[in-house]
Nucleic acid binder design. Structure first.
Lengths: 229, 229
DNA sequence: CGGTGAATTGACGCTGCTCAATAGCGGTGG
DNA sequence: CCACCGCTATTGAGCAGCGTCAATTCACCG
């Protein structure tokens, strides 16, 4: 069960709040505060929900990766966030989704009925506080990302992305990106070509090493960090 | 007192959630859920709080306008949001502010101690839900703004800004902008010159009329709306 | 009126986009 | 096992939209 002891303390990224700490159960995990949960699988590029649809669940990524995004009528896409194992998404305060969600690669997610969550939240302040924290964590990420989209140049954006992904999914110093260059571009407000060129430039400078186009090793995190501030 | 009856219904923008519906009281308004509140005044461009400082209050704009923003080391600025009368800001889930806040013009704000709010929230789910809604509304705005910053061109950005401001502060079809072109640019991820040029182009096309550089009348809202979708 | 900060407008240049060609990589089947 | 195919990524050339720098002009206030 979700640890509520410090609901108001600064606790860092949401992914460290386990939906189901006794992980590994195949299906019907106990879920948030004992609420019924269900596991669902999605294929690569499969839609999880669409913008405008009723918002019925809170989702937690178990395996794979998910992108949430918005589209303009002519097809321009802005990816809001990538959601990796352990992270929550899809809980909206409005009745309908304000974003669409798709699996970046084959993914498993755990879902909890929003209605049940809200009912519990009206009774138990702990649950309501946890929901507040989820929204607040998303908001913080969004604020950082607005600075990136509004004021950083291409290289700074790519470096920020790499450092974020490195922190969230590196194993033994190697990150295996689940998403393609177009996804990265649509997240960073760039084209896939500009992303590719920026990565090549960083590799050229020795700031990173490739192990195939999606496996990347950062060679000097502190120096990269200084490039985005 | 904040209406809690429909805490989980889709209720639109946060500014319609009155902190103190019996407005007009000069000082010490009753505030959120009966919590002690205090009124504070700030001069134009005065700092309300800085990024990194402890987050101690929830703020509600009573008069004037407030900008919240982030800075890069070299001075590039991204304005996160403008906060107009009736709107809340400054409540962070973390212990420290992730944004800075300044008065755009002379402003009065009502403040409520965060500690008191959180104490109440742990007891009353209503309060916690209201806090969730505040964060969720901010998040929704941030998501829309990321699409704007990442994928819209200069003209589309300026049109989106005008429609938003028109909705939030127009009186009898006329909006009196409290902020300068630089503020608008830093909000839209543009330079002040590009903002000025876009406004001139719109006036040239007859889409809007000026009454001095900061008083603007939109002439065809539906057509403008179609330009940003 | 005159002064000061804000806004407009112009000329020019650069960053990142567009369009296009090529190279790499992973999966599939002969 | 390797040849092939399709998708992804890289790289190049040219261009355009927005930024930069600079010169006026405008609006507000003493």
């Amino acid at each position: 069960m979700l640890d509520m002891a410090n609901s108001f303390q600064d606790r860092g990224a949401q992914r460290f709040v386990p939906l189901n700490p006794s992980a590994g159960e195949p299906s019907a995990p106990r879920g948030l505060g004992g609420l019924a949960a269900k596991e669902v699988s999605y294929d690569r590029d499969e839609e999880i929900y669409g913008e405008g649809e009723p918002s019925e669940y809170l989702y937690c990524v178990r395996r794979g990766a998910v992108r949430t995004f918005k589209l303009l009528r002519d097809g321009r896409r802005q990816i809001d966030a990538f959601h990796l194992p352990g992270e929550y998404f899809g809980l909206s305060a409005s009745e309908t989704h304000r974003l669409s969600a798709e699996a970046v690669i084959d993914a498993k997610v755990v879902i909890v009925k929003r209605r049940a969550l809200e009912t519990r939240a009206m009774q138990e302040a702990d649950i309501a506080c946890a929901m507040w924290r989820l929204a607040a964590d998303d908001l913080r990420n969004a604020q950082d990302h607005m600075l990136l989209l509004g004021r950083k140049n291409a290289l700074e954006r790519v470096v920020a992305f790499l450092l974020d992904m490195d922190r969230r999914l590196s194993v033994a110093g190697v990150m295996a990106l689940p998403m393609c260059r177009r996804d990265i571009g649509d997240y960073l407000g760039l084209t896939l070509e500009t992303v590719s060129r920026s990565l090549s430039a960083l590799a050229e400078k020795g700031a990173l090493s490739f192990n195939g186009s999606r496996q990347i090793i950062l060679n000097n995190r502190a120096r990269l960090q200084a490039m985005t501030e």
